[in-house]
Nucleic acid binder design. Structure first.
Length: 578
DNA sequence: GCCGTTTTCGGCCCGACTGTTTTCAGTCG
C-alpha cells in the first residue's frame, strides 16, 4: 500500500472521529499522522523494513500498528469499523465550504448522506428547521456545493502568482496602501494554491477595502469586514485581503504565511518559553501580564524565540524549527545564483522563437548559457528533429553564437526515452551534443517495475546528462507515472546523472519532497524552464521555489555553475558512465 | 493520540466573520 493511500485512511478516521465528537486533540493527532505519512520521501514499507517507522515525528505506537496493519492486510480495523456507522459518501460533505463536523453530524441525523441529498434538502427548504440553521445557511450550503463543483480544484502556482501580481499592482496604484505583501501558500511557493492572501497596512483601511472589492477581476464578494474581505475572482480563485496595523505587519505576515502546521509547532515552542505569538505581535507572558516584544517585522517574531528568520518555503513543519534552533538552516538557492537555463526549445521543434531570439532573451535575464533542447524524432507532433534536421540546426546555432555574443549556446536535445529504455537517437549522434536531457513522453501506463527499469536503463547511457521532468505529471490533468522514485534517485547518485526540476508551473517535477531526497542522496539537480517562448524563461522563479521547498542550496544545483565549470562537470560524469 | 529545555501526566494556537442568537456556536485559516 502506498503512502498516499495510508494517509487517506488516517484522514478519513480523523474526519469521522470529529463528527462523532471525539476528543479534538485525538482527532488532530490522526490528522498530523496523515500529514506526516503523506510527506514522507520514502515508502512506508521501506521504512518499516528498516524499523524506522517509530522514529517519525507525529507517528506514535498506535499509528505504527495501524500502518503495519494496512501494509499487511490492506485494511485497518478501526477505519472499517468507523465506516460501518458513517456512510462513505458523507466524507464529501467536508469539501463543501461552510460545512464542518457539527453540520455533518446534523445532516447524518436527518438521514442526509450524499451531496445530492443535501442539495435536494436545501432546495426544498428542509434544512431551515434544524437547530442553528436558517434560510441563509441553507443558501450558503447551496452556494458552497456550487462552488465546490465549479471551483473545486486549486489554482496552479503560475495562475495564483499572476493574480496576486495583478491585485498588488492595482492596489498600489489606486489605493492608499503602505506595506503590502502576498502571504499564504503562494509565499511558500506551494505547487498549488487554495487562495491568494494579501496583507496591507494603511492609515485609511476602508478606502483600501472598497477599492479591493471593486476591482475588475472580482467576480463575487464572499465576505466583507473592516479588516478582512474575501472575493472569488473571475477565474474562480479566492482572494483575501487583510488590513493590519503597521506595528503588527510582521506578526500578521508570519501568521498568514503559515503553514498551519509550522505555526502550531512554533506556538508550541513559544509556550514553553512563556512567549505568546499571534497575528498582532509577540509577547512575553509573566504572571498574567503581557509585555510586547515586537511584531512590526517578521524577523522579530522568530528573534523573540531565539531563532533566525525561517524562509517561507521551509515553513511546513518538516524539521525547519529544529534546524533553526541548531543553527543548521540551509542557505537556500536564490534566483540571482542561476547562471543559465538548460532546457529551452526553439522553433526548430515546437518552440515559438528562433535560436538567436531565445539566446537574446536569456542574455537579457543575465544568463551566461542556455541549453537548446529541441525534441527528438518520436515527438512527431512536437516537430521532433530527425538526425539530419538536428545536424542542420547546428549551422543556425553557430550563426546565433556569432550574432549573440556573451552567452554560451549549448547544442542539446530533449531525447525521448523509448518503451524499452532505449533512446531516440543513436549514441554516435548523442556524442556530438553538448547537453542531453532524456525524458519519457509515451507509455504513461507502463507498470511500476517496468517504468523504473526503463528510466534507469536510459540513465545508464553515457551521454545522458539529466533526466527531464522525472515523473511526467501535469498538475490537475495527468497523474505522475508509476515509478519507484527512490530507486531512480539512487541510480542517479550512482551514475552521476542530474535530476531536472522542471519549472513549468503545471509540472514542478521533481516535486519538493523528491528534491529534498535527491539532496540527501547526493544527486545534483538542474532547474530548467522547458521554455517554448522567451517569456517562459521567467517560469524559473517557480522552479527556484520548488528547489527551496526541497531545502536545496546553490551547490546542489548544476546551473549555478559557470559555463566552464558546468562543461567539465558534465564531462566527468559522462566518462564515469562510459 | 502524541509528546517532553518545568513533564511519562496533562496539556495540546487562537482571533475574525457569519448566522442565529439575545450572548454564542460553527467554521475557517
Amino acid at each position: 500500500m502506498r503512502n498516499s493511500e495510508i494517509a487517506r485512511v488516517f484522514s478519513e478516521i480523523a474526519a469521522i472521529l470529529t463528527v462523532r465528537g471525539e476528543n479534538p486533540f485525538k482527532v488532530r493527532a490522526y490528522e498530523r499522522a496523515a500529514e506526516a505519512i503523506g510527506s514522507l520521501t520514502e515508502e512506508a514499507s521501506a521504512l518499516r523494513e528498516r524499523g524506522e517507522l517509530a522514529g517519525i515525528a507525529d507517528i506514535g505506537a498506535s499509528s505504527v500498528a495501524k500502518i503495519e496493519e494496512l501494509l499487511d492486510t490492506g485494511r485497518c480495523a478501526l477505519h472499517q469499523e468507523l465506516l460501518q456507522e458513517f456512510p462513505p459518501t458523507a466524507l464529501e460533505f467536508f469539501r463543501v465550504p461552510g460545512v464542518g463536523p457539527k453540520t455533518v453530524k446534523l445532516l447524518l441525523d436527518e438521514a442526509i448522506a450524499t451531496i445530492e441529498e443535501l442539495e435536494t434538502a436545501a432546495q426544498a427548504g428542509r434544512l431551515r428547521g434544524l437547530r442553528g440553521m436558517g434560510a441563509k445557511t441553507e443558501q450558503e450550503i447551496l452556494r458552497g456545493i456550487a462552488r465546490m463543483r465549479e471551483y473545486g480544484k486549486r489554482a496552479d502556482l503560475g495562475t495564483a502568482w499572476a493574480l496576486a501580481q495583478a491585485i498588488v499592482e492595482a492596489l498600489r496604484e489606486g489605493a492608499p496602501v503602505d506595506q503590502m505583501e502576498a502571504a499564504g501558500s503562494l509565499r511558500r511557493m506551494k505547487e498549488t494554491i487554495g487562495d491568494v492572501d494579501i496583507l496591507v497596512t494603511s492609515d485609511r483601511p476602508e478606502e483600501v477595502m472598497a477599492r479591493f472589492l471593486s476591482l475588475d477581476l472580482v467576480g463575487e464578494v464572499v465576505m466583507q469586514g473592516p479588516t478582512k474581505s474575501s472575493v472569488l475572482t473571475r477565474d474562480g480563485v479566492q482572494a483575501d485581503l487583510r488590513v493590519v496595523a503597521p506595528e503588527s505587519f510582521g506578526a500578521a505576515l508570519q501568521y498568514f504565511t503559515g503553514s498551519k502546521e509550522h505555526n502550531v509547532r512554533l506556538r508550541d515552542h513559544a509556550v514553553r518559553r512563556k512567549i505568546k505569538l499571534n497575528e498582532y505581535g509577540v509577547f512575553r507572558v509573566e504572571e498574567g501580564k503581557e509585555e510586547r516584544l515586537g511584531g512590526r517585522a517578521e524577523e522579530e517574531m522568530y528573534a523573540a524565540l531565539g531563532l533566525p528568520l525561517i524562509p517561507p518555503e521551509l515553513r511546513e513543519d518538516q524539521g525547519e524549527i529544529e534546524a533553526a534552533r541548531e543553527g543548521a538552516l540551509p542557505e537556500l538557492v536564490e534566483q540571482s545564483q542561476i547562471r543559465g537555463d538548460l532546457h529551452v526549445h526553439s522553433d526548430w521543434s515546437d518552440g515559438h522563437e528562433d535560436i538567436a531570439g531565445m539566446a537574446r532573451a536569456a542574455k537579457a535575464r543575465g544568463y551566461k548559457y542556455i541549453g537548446l533542447c529541441d525534441h527528438s524524432p518520436s515527438q512527431t507532433v512536437a516537430g521532433g528533429l530527425s538526425v539530419e534536421r538536428l545536424r542542420e540546426r547546428k549551422a543556425e546555432l553557430e550563426a546565433a553564437r556569432r550574432a549573440v555574443p556573451g552567452i554560451t549556446i549549448l547544442n542539446g536535445t530533449e531525447v525521448d526515452i523509448k518503451r524499452g529504455g532505449g533512446l531516440d537517437y543513436p549514441d554516435e549522434v548523442l556524442a556530438e551534443l553538448d547537453f542531453v536531457v532524456a525524458s519519457v513522453h509515451s507509455g504513461w501506463k507502463t507498470e511500476r517495475a517496468a517504468m523504473t527499469a526503463r528510466i534507469i536503463k536510459a540513465m545508464e547511457n553515457p551521454w545522458v546528462d539529466c533526466l527531464g521532468h522525472p515523473t511526467g505529471r501535469l498538475l490537475g490533468r495527468r497523474e505522475p507515472y508509476d515509478v519507484d522514485m527512490e530507486e531512480v534517485l539512487k541510480a542517479a547518485a550512482r551514475l552521476g546523472v542530474a535530476m531536472e526540476i522542471n519549472a513549468y508551473p503545471d509540472r514542478l517535477d521533481l516535486k519538493d519532497v523528491h528534491a529534498r531526497r535527491a539532496k540527501e542522496l547526493g544527486v545534483k539537480v538542474i532547474i530548467s524552464t522547458d521554455a517554448h517562448a522567451p517569456e517562459h524563461l521567467d517560469f524559473i522563479r517557480f522552479g527556484i521555489g520548488t528547489a527551496r521547498r526541497g531545502w536545496l542550496e546553490a551547490n546542489d544545483i548544476l546551473n549555478t555553475l559557470s559555463a566552464a565549470q558546468l562543461r567539465s562537470r558534465l564531462r566527468r560524469a559522462r566518462s564515469r558512465r562510459s
